[in-house]
Write a protein that binds this DNA or RNA. Structure first.
Lengths: 153, 153
DNA sequence: CTACTGAGTTCGGATTTCGAACTCAGTCTC
DNA sequence: GAGACTGAGTTCGAAATCCGAACTCAGTAG
């Protein structure tokens, strides 16, 4: 097989997505982002909502803050209290989340097969597509070059 | 099939995405899917490409097979050899992957900001959008109802 | 004075991950 | 036909993570 410029062994850069998954690719981080999108901001609320262990939550939030996905905001002074809010970068993870939710709905028979993701203004179930500004068209994953979907085969 | 029966700690069913992340939400699984999309199929190639430890790869592949994302295919008899191919469900994870790659490129500090994802026919950098069949429009994450993106704010 | 809140820390034990070396059947090279 | 090689794993002990439960610390409320 041919490796195209991706060195991932020791301390090498690795591709962008590998770094990203090193930050966000654990069992909790994406769930934390989702909780953030649902409006959860406080330590104890994350804890209760996800059932994550406190020390792990502490460490995870610290890391997500460090990588600019959440920010730690003082929201009260008397007893000093902080909460965690998604940054713009954190919000920008929502397409990935939506894709995961859609996949979950389609391939996990389990439980409600009710559609949970809709276009807010009209209530229609949403589709996810790629958009080409030049061509003014939408297209599916097979016309994407770069993840390797269409490399060789 | 697929994800039926995945429980969280307390034995509760949990929402669809929680189950999904329980299967796919670790440091390696998504990278394995990506490697699969890039055409990698053999045990040793996954190993070399990702630098994943062999015992972990064994366990991870077994799980992904169990949940219908990869299938284990005998491709040779003389010495019996198996390889791992993405199933349809596995391929269907590509939108999530693409979303992550795009996010990585845009927000991940470090490394080249060269565009790696393009619309194959024309070479334009792709955008990712949601598509409403009823309205015949694309829209961004803020018009999505269901992940909580539009709760308050 | 006591109880409670919120955001953490500390603890010891259980689980997961790691790299390196080993296995095992068959095949290729000399 | 002896030795090296291949591919798909296992086995090992050490190191890193994860866990729940209990504790801390500042301030507030009764």
């Amino acid at each position: 097989m041919y490796l195209r410029g991706v060195m991932n062994q020791q301390g090498q850069p690795g591709s962008a997505i590998e770094e990203t998954l090193r930050v966000v690719g654990d069992r909790w981080s994406i769930l934390l982002v989702r909780a953030g999108l649902r409006g959860i901001r406080r330590f104890d609320d994350f804890c209760d909502d996800l059932g994550i262990a406190r020390p792990v939550l502490t460490e995870r939030l610290r890391r997500l803050v460090k990588f600019g996905i959440f920010e730690r905001v003082r929201y009260q002074d008397k007893p000093v209290r902080y909460e965690y809010r998604l940054t713009e970068a954190g919000l920008a993870l929502s397409p990935a989340l939506v894709a995961l939710v859609r996949w979950s709905e389609e391939y996990s028979q389990e439980v409600s097969s009710e559609t949970t993701l809709v276009h807010a203004p009209c209530g229609t179930e949403l589709e996810q597509a790629f958009w080409c500004r030049s061509c003014q068209t939408t297209f599916g994953p097979h016309a994407v070059k770069g993840v390797g979907v269409n490399d060789e085969s």
